[in-house]
Every structure is written in C-alpha cells, then in structure tokens.
Amino acid sequence: MPKNTFKTRLEIAKNKLLKKKLYQDNQPTSSLGTAFKMSTELVAHVAVGTIIGFILDKTFGTKPWLILIFFFVGVVAGIINVFKSAKNMQK
C-alpha cells in the first residue's frame, strides 16, 4: 500500500526532526552571550549587596558592620548564581 508507506516515512521524518530540535535545544544558544552574562552578574551581585549594606548602615547608624556583612553576602550570592548557571548549562 503506497499510502501506508508514505505515512510511516512521514512518521520517521517527524521523529528525526524532533530529535534534531531536542539536540539543538541542548546546545547553548550563544556561549559568548553566556560568558558576558555570568561575568557581569558576578559583579552586580557584589555591588547590590554592598549598596544594600550601605543603605541599611545609614538608616540604623551601625556604620562599618552591615556593609561588611552584606558585601560578603553579595559575594556568596554571586558565586551561588554562577554555580546555578553552570548547572543549567550542563543539563
């Protein structure tokens, strides 16, 4: 039956396309873009942590302490974020 063979062939072609698409999805869309993203995010986390510490210090009048604590929290947040991105890339 010619109709049947066409259907099976269509099915095979569709599966192939699906596999190809899945494979493409796994590829990082743009590695250079990811590199830019990670590097700036690491810096931005530290900056935001420091800014929050500075503002809290000003409002509570605990001059050097909160800025120090939040600086390190910012560093931790930045590193955790890079870890998360790296994990997502390996998926």
Partner: peptide
C-alpha cells in the same frame, strides 16, 4: 534567612547586571 537574603540580592541585581553589561561592552 540567609538564602532569602541571597535570593533578594540576586533579584535586585538583575537591572544592574542587565544595564552594566550593555553599557560596558
């Protein structure tokens, strides 16, 4: 408590990293 603070910092850092990346490049 620590994780919540970290998550808030990473949420607030979004506009900064987004803008600094484009500007700096």
């Amino acid at each position: 408590p620590l994780i919540v603070v970290i998550e808030i910092i990473s949420y607030l850092s979004r506009p900064i990293s987004l803008s600094v990346r484009l500007f700096a490049n």
